[in-house]
């Protein structure tokens, strides 16, 4: 099977998160984005910005 995620269903997720707009800790999950266009960006780590 192709190892790329392209053309496949996005994996489900549910994680703790920080929302800088409200300044609050929240939970985000894949279901929040049903019916919406979404971009997910991974980066190596806080305090190591590129």
């Amino acid at each position: 099977m192709c190892s790329s995620l392209v053309t496949r269903q996005m994996p489900e997720f549910k994680l703790d998160a920080y929302d800088p707009v409200s300044g609050k800790y929240i939970t985000v999950c894949s279901d929040d984005y049903k019916g919406k266009w979404l971009t997910v960006c991974f980066y190596p780590g806080d305090f190591t910005f590129v």
């Binding site: 995620l5 392209v6 269903q9 266009w37 979404l38 971009t39 960006c41 991974f42 980066y43 780590g45």
Partner: peptide, 21 residues
């Protein structure tokens, strides 16, 4: 090896299908 996420960017459409990475 590094215990981190490498720089990946994914575009997902309203059906939940990944269109680009």
């Amino acid at each position: 090896n590094d215990g981190v996420a490498i720089r990946g960017r994914f575009l997902v459409n309203p059906d939940g299908t990944v269109l680009a990475q």
